[in-house]
Design a protein around this nucleic acid. Structure first.
Length: 476
DNA sequence: TTTTGAGTTGTTCGA
DNA sequence: GTCGAACAACTCAAA
């Protein structure tokens, strides 16, 4: 029996390319014991849509590893218990994995380092799926940036890493004879019929991530800057879920974006704009590492006493189900339910509606997104919900309350997006599709829309709730 | 230490 | 229809 393997524990780095943890394992020149531990802790363990994605992605990397004659072993429980036990069992003194920057994961890293150190086991935690290590981008006062633009400039000054690591050609693998569970036993996929929608929409896995990236970068970046705000135009990259699970590295995205920006000067600006979005991802991660409480508590302390409602079952349910009576909101929420995704601009509009018109606590919205988005990411979800609610970094002025009708007219003027997700409004003319309750009776009849029956009446009054929100925010 | 300018994504109103 | 101003005050970052 071959002894002394190195344990490589897969986390959110489900890829073979650009994988520094895997590279470390290979360079250790020992048989590699590939391990995946599914941990479902109490707080912020993966939501249903994320579990579906994770299931597909694990299946994908399992197959990719098998192509290299390597086997991936699955476990369920706490890494704190399982890793030391496995190490002892196979007489291994080296463990490697890539860092996950969620607060609980970082706590676990600290505990494991101590625990393994006592047993003379070397734990190497490589930089996770970020361009810049959290804590490495600091202002002149050596503090973490709390404003995006200076952070972005500082990233530029530092220079974007874009070095790539090729896929390993062969692996020295380890066969584990002990007890592990089967992939199916992880039981990740929720037994709900809605996963059909996810299946139809998404192809998880590293190979698909790379295909998508190449397609996106060669198709001229889809005129990103010009079209990004229009939910019916497919101009965004859809890389977010792949990035979250580490099926692609941000370095590789930077590499291709920079390349195309250099080759085609007309695309330089587009390329830069998309890199800017990737930096937002970094920003959120750096903020969460420094302010781990922001998953549950407001970044700005003064908002602790803000009178958000924790429950309003009727409103929350209508919002979740896309039955608020506001077509753009409903279209967005139905897109989310059907596909595990929502266009960025619509995310802001529905979030503003819930937290400002509805005065519902932003965490209620964050939890729903967490459960239903395939790209749910703790750092980004927390930061962005707080941004919309006005209690986060780069706080929005209190008067910035999105009007779902105005936004709809501006960014879905032809009502294409609304018609796709609210087909019961299909026959309404453009003039009334953004606000059906304003349509004269004969128009509604001609369009076969019986308001309150086929499509709900508006659940709240925009003007009144806007005034209310302005008052409450002003009184802070 | 103090000062200065800036801060992702908006809406409404009135000229 | 288009455009600019007003909608607070505060914090951050750099000079």
């Amino acid at each position: 029996m071959i002894k002394n393997p190195i344990i490589y524990c897969l986390k959110n780095d489900l890829r073979l390319l650009d994988n520094s943890a895997l590279q470390f394992a290979i360079e250790a020149d020992k048989p590699i014991f590939f391990v995946y531990i599914y941990e479902s802790s109490e707080d912020w363990s993966p939501g249903a849509a994320s579990r579906w994605w994770l299931h597909q992605s694990l299946l994908s990397i399992k197959t990719d590893l098998e192509d290299l004659n390597a086997k991936l072993y699955f476990f369920s429980g706490s890494a704190i218990e399982i890793l030391p036990k496995l190490a002892a069992e196979v007489q291994c003194d080296q463990i490697v994995y890539s860092r996950v920057y969620e607060p609980e994961a970082l706590n676990q890293d600290r505990k494991l380092l101590g625990l393994l150190n006592d047993r003379n086991i070397d734990l190497k935690i490589s930089q996770g799926n970020v361009l810049f290590r959290p804590g490495s981008i600091l202002n002149k006062q050596d503090n973490v940036y709390k404003v995006f633009t200076p952070f972005y400039k500082a990233c530029h000054k530092k220079g974007f890493p874009s070095q790539l690591i090729e896929k390993p050609k062969s692996l020295l693998t380890f066969n584990y004879k002990g007890d592990s569970i089967s992939f199916e036993d992880l039981n990740l996929v929720p037994k709900k019929s809605w996963i059909k929608g996810l299946k139809a929409q998404w192809k998880p896995g590293e190979k698909n991530a790379n295909k998508l990236l190449k397609k996106y970068t060669t198709a001229g970046l889809f005129q990103y800057s010009e079209k990004r705000d229009f939910p019916n135009l497919d101009s965004t990259s859809h890389m977010s879920p792949y990035l979250h699970f580490g099926e692609i590295s941000p370095q590789r995205i930077i590499y291709y974006l920079t390349k195309i920006g250099n080759e085609k000067p007309t695309l330089e600006l587009e390329s830069e704009n998309i890199i800017r979005q990737l930096v937002w991802r970094e920003f959120a991660c750096h903020i969460l590492v420094s302010y781990p409480f922001t998953t549950d508590k407001p970044f700005q302390d003064k908002f602790t006493k803000f009178p958000w409602k924790r429950s309003d079952k009727k409103l929350i349910a209508a919002w979740q189900q896309g039955k608020t009576g506001y077509p753009l909101i409903d279209a967005g929420m139905r897109e989310l339910w059907a596909t595990g995704y929502m266009h960025n601009r619509v995310r802001m509009v529905v979030a503003s509606f819930l937290t400002k018109n509805g005065l519902i606590h932003w965490k209620q919205g964050a939890l729903w997104f967490w459960d239903t988005l395939v790209d749910a990411d703790l750092a980004q979800n927390s930061m962005n919900w707080q941004w919309v609610a006005g209690c986060g970094v780069d706080a929005a002025p209190y008067f910035r309350i999105f009007n779902p009708v105005t936004q709809s007219k501006k960014f879905d003027a032809e009502g294409m997006y609304i018609r796709r997700w609210c087909p019961e409004l299909n026959e309404l003319p453009n003039k009334y599709i953004h606000a059906p309750w304003e349509a004269p009776k004969h128009i509604l009849e001609a369009a076969c829309v019986n308001l309150g029956h086929d499509y709900p009446d508006p659940i709240l009054d925009l003007k009144a709730t806007r005034e209310r929100a302005l008052m409450v925010y002003q009184s802070m």
